[in-house]
Design a protein around this nucleic acid. Structure first.
Lengths: 219, 219
DNA sequence: ATGTTCTATGAAAACTTGTTCACTGTCAAG
DNA sequence: CTTGACAGTGAACAAGTTTTCATAGAACAT
């Protein structure tokens, strides 16, 4: 995926924020005003670029009508995985859905039993919840370099029973992190795969959202 | 809240579905086409009615720009709480936010320790997660009549440490239910407060989203 | 009977918005 | 030095969209 320029990123972020705040998209002139462009065409160009780079989909002719290709970003520099981009519906990427909320909607494969707690609440149907699937994460930062997971890589997370040594996406005290699962006896730890980071993290309540099964690297 | 006519409800539902599917609002003409009106003004009138009745907010002059007053419906007849209405942002109702997703974003006050797992991933900021708050549920059905919670009532759910006897909104095997929490020794059960419903539900993995602290009844 | 409300038609006005055209400047690569 | 990609101005156009106006039948209460 081609990289965005600073301004493109800013505009995309503004649009997302606008949707999040108002529940409808900004018009081109809204964006123009926000960034103090003298011409609407400045915005128009950026939007074309955003569409060409595949992060934004415009609906030709329709006003205030866009779709966003969800970006799920695992920012490992601060060990927080955050979700960027509205929309609840999964968009398939190589058969793997890029889901909406990274921090919500995934099974609790905690130690005990085979009980599964899906917390996904899809907007679409308004009734039943969707079964959890594999999902993709794009990685930022370098805290997993020991595991050969680098900045810009895409990690495929699959639900399943995590075992010792697995790299997992886990919720710890409300934050989602990507770490290696360490089991010693009946105790469980999470370990950052970067020697510059502090070692074992003691874990009391552990919610594992999935296991990193494969890494997609851009060439 | 004034009741909606059948057509108004249908139009509102269509608009919601459209947003959920496309991530942008339908134009008046879209709605006109959907319902085969001969004039856009038919739609216009319905939209005015929806706004007057307080379930829809229009942004004057702007195209495809609306806000919805979220309706959160706890359908106790099948013990499933489902969310209707898009939008992630909390809208305050008597100081209590009507949150977007009932099934996502609330703390895990599971047995152990004081550890708190917030799973909310707000769209708005795109970075940190929002602290959980109290939220309101509108109740449908009658499975809690023993607790004097009836159809049409609004229940205020607050996060906190649930104790024996509390009525809680809980996630069980992926479904959100509203039941009474029963603790016997070190075992935990959920009980429907309706004698017509099966009794104790054995619980292995329990995620309590909040405690029903008060009930608002329409007179 | 009469007025009111709701729902709807049909057409047009007025405004919003996306899009296009012509032109300019910057900056890095070839 | 030139080429091309990128970012922008300024103006105008065309289409999309909301909104208003005039009119009318049905249901319903007064």
């Amino acid at each position: 995926m081609e990289e965005l320029t600073k301004k493109q990123r800013a505009i995309l972020d503004y649009m997302k924020a606008h949707v999040a705040e108002h529940t409808y998209w900004p018009s081109i002139r809204d964006i123009q005003a926000k960034f103090r462009f003298a011409s609407t065409n400045a915005v128009f160009g950026h939007l074309q670029a955003l569409e060409r780079k595949g992060v934004l989909q415009r609906i030709p002719g329709a006003a205030r009508a866009y779709k966003i290709v969800p970006e799920i970003v695992a920012d490992l520099s601060d060990n927080i995985i955050r979700y960027e981009g509205p929309g609840e519906d999964a968009i398939e990427l190589n058969g793997i859905p890029l889901v909406g909320h990274i921090a919500a909607g995934f099974p609790d494969y905690t130690e005990s039993s085979g009980v599964l707690n899906t917390m996904q609440a899809p907007i679409s149907e308004g009734s039943r919840r969707r079964a959890p699937q594999a999902f993709a994460l794009r990685v930022r930062g370098d805290s997993m370099i020991d595991a050969d997971i680098h900045d810009g890589d895409t990690v495929i997370i699959e639900p399943g029973q995590a075992k010792h040594g697995d790299i997992v996406a886990a919720l710890i005290d409300g934050e989602t992190t990507l770490k290696r699962l360490i089991k010693q006896g009946n105790k469980t730890y999470l370990q950052a795969a970067n020697q510059n980071y502090p070692d074992l993290t003691p874990v009391q309540s552990l919610v594992i959202q999935g296991i990193a099964k494969s890494v997609v690297k851009s060439i």
